[in-house]
């Protein structure tokens, strides 16, 4: 039984079709890396899954919640999938704790004390419990990204979408974020990540999706995709001949 079902999804900006019929089923607990050149549609695909982009055709569902373009359905869907962004997008006017508490109290109507406890638990989990009262601009990029992960986790999603979450980080900060993601994967969280970290994809992911010109060009377990790429496009992308 698939957790995320993506069926014949098409997406156009005007006459420019960026997704040309995507099919992808993700089982619970799977960790999927989506790789490909920029402009291949990988970020767009990820953003379609939680409705940040509207799809032109096709269907997407997450654990039975259909992607439909109205606030009630979108909310139900977004409670099941969290998302983490390249630019962190923490709320700069709130403390770290406030960032993690806000959506719990506002969206889920969780009591303040309970939300507070959950926030502390999640911040501890990403190793930032001691930064509870700090403001985002007092943190390093890696720390900010870990807060963003804690913020998404506090909503207890069943899957997480990660959109190039280490691309805006200094090289020495990448590993602390990836360590958190690795732990999540080990705990059985379903992850869909657009990434340029090939080594990480090879080590952690259960399947790798190579996207090219709006299509899933090649898909398979990492050993297969990375060691014996079948299509010339993937060979060129990976730099093997």
């Amino acid at each position: 039984m698939s957790l995320i079902e993506i069926t014949e999804v098409r997406k156009s900006y005007g006459t420019n079709e960026v997704l040309k019929g995507i099919n992808l089923d993700v089982a619970p607990g799977e960790v999927i890396a989506i790789i490909g050149k920029s402009g291949s549609g990988k970020s767009t695909l990820l953003r379609c899954i939680n409705g940040l982009e509207t799809i032109t055709q096709g269907a997407i569902s997450v654990a039975g919640a259909q992607l439909l373009d109205d606030e009630v359905h979108l909310k139900a869907l977004r409670l099941k999938v969290g998302m983490i962004f390249q630019q962190f997008n923490l709320f700069p006017h709130l403390t770290v704790g406030g960032n993690v508490i806000l959506s719990q109290t506002v969206v889920k109507k969780t009591a303040k004390a309970e939300a507070d406890a959950m926030a502390r638990k999640m911040l501890d989990r990403v190793g930032l419990g001691h930064k509870f009262d700090a403001y985002p601009d007092e943190l390093s990029g890696g720390q900010q990204q870990r807060v963003a992960i804690a913020r998404a986790l506090a909503m207890q999603p069943i899957a997480l979408l990660c959109d190039e979450i280490t691309s805006a980080l200094d090289p020495e900060l990448v590993s602390e974020v990836l360590a958190v993601v690795r732990e999540l994967a080990a705990e059985g969280m379903t992850l869909l990540m657009v990434t340029h970290e090939m080594k990480f994809a090879r080590d952690v992911c259960s399947r790798v999706v190579f996207m090219h010109e709006g299509r899933v060009h090649e898909i398979g377990p990492p050993q297969e995709v990375f060691s014996s790429p079948k299509t010339p496009e993937l060979q060129q992308f990976l730099g093997v001949h």
Binding site: N50, G51, L52, E71, L74, K75, R78, L79, V81, G82, M83, F85, Q87, N89, L90, F91, L102, S103, V106, V107, K108, A148, R151, A152, M155
Partner: peptide, 18 residues
């Protein structure tokens, strides 16, 4: 206000008024 603020809050399930 940066577009990412809208996207982050939307992906946390907030409605437009929230």
């Amino acid at each position: 206000i940066a577009k990412g603020q809208w996207e982050a809050s939307a992906s946390l399930g907030m409605g437009r008024l929230q």
